[in-house]
Computed example of a mutant assay.
Amino acid sequence: MERLERCSRCLRARLVAAAARRRLPWLLLGLVVLGSALKDGELVPETPMQNKRNVLNVYFVKVAWAWTFWLLLPFIGVTTYLFARSKFFYGPTKSVLAALRRLSALLVGTAVWYVCTELFMYIENLTGTCSASSELGEAHQLYATKQDCHRNNGIWNGFDISGHCFLLSYCTLMIVEEMAVLEGLSIDRNARLRVVINSLFVSLCFLTMIWVFMFLCTTLYFHDFSQKLLGALVGLAAWYATYRVWYLKPFSPGLPLPNTPLSSKKYSYSR
């Protein structure tokens, strides 16, 4: 338990700070530029990460939204309930309603993930053609989608916006935003809840590190610069439209730390 507590304090000082949240979008864009430059200059060494079947890609990135969703679900629920009880002195019912309102941010995130990934696939199908070798004497076939092309051992050439850059940037920014609630929440009074929250927090921090690392690997080994940049920009735009614009409005899931003005550089709890 002591190790968990020390680890939580160390990570909180680095990832929950307002400065980290301000710099993270620029860090992600910088990784796109740097990784693409190294890839185009053929300066990237061969590593297992260039294989799409590597463990982190198969068991984490391919289901990145599921990992993010199921770890944020208890974290948002518990911390929002405690925040409402300790800071606003809400009763149990009103605190539960506050938690449910904040949990709706996960539904928004799910909608963002689904709409954007479907849009990316539509654009790739719309802009692509299939290069498939047909047998001698057999008429050349046209395939309407990437899936049909691959089923016939073809290669689909379309504008493939990086879904990894989009989703990993969006998940990373969302997790860091949600962890900001710890700036205004005291968990020292209840030992059991402290262990639960610290465990979830440390898990989210390590998940964030995996997302950033795999984001870097994507920029180093896959896609063209324009595809990666556009994917990352869509992820950043989705984060900005929600946490920096919509969630400031009354009819929204709200921010992890209430009463935070858009112009606030500290983005911290208003005491």
Rank of each mutant, 00 (worst) to 15 (best):
M1Q: 08
E5I: 12
V16C: 00
A17G: 09
R22A: 13
L24G: 00
L27Q: 04
L28Q: 09
L28R: 04
V32H: 00
L34G: 00
S36F: 12
E46I: 07
T47Y: 05
V58M: 05
A64I: 14
A66P: 06
W70M: 12
W70H: 06
L71N: 07
L72V: 06
P74L: 12
I76R: 01
R85C: 09
S86V: 14
F88Q: 13
F88P: 01
P92A: 04
K94L: 06
S95V: 08
L100R: 15
A105M: 05
V108N: 03
V108P: 03
V112C: 10
W113V: 04
Y114A: 11
Y114E: 08
V115F: 14
V115C: 06
V115K: 12
V115Q: 04
T117I: 08
G128Y: 06
T129I: 11
E138G: 14
A139T: 08
L142N: 12
T145A: 03
C149Q: 06
R151M: 10
N157A: 05
N157V: 13
C165E: 04
C165R: 09
S169G: 04
S169C: 05
S169F: 05
I175M: 08
M179N: 00
L182F: 02
I187V: 05
N190P: 09
R192L: 12
R194C: 03
N198T: 00
C205D: 00
M209T: 07
L216M: 01
Y221N: 03
S226I: 15
Q227I: 14
K228R: 15
L229A: 15
L230N: 02
G235P: 07
W239R: 02
W246N: 03
P250Q: 09
F251N: 09
L255V: 14
L257K: 02
L262I: 07
K266G: 07
Y269R: 04
Y269F: 10
Y269I: 13
R271F: 12
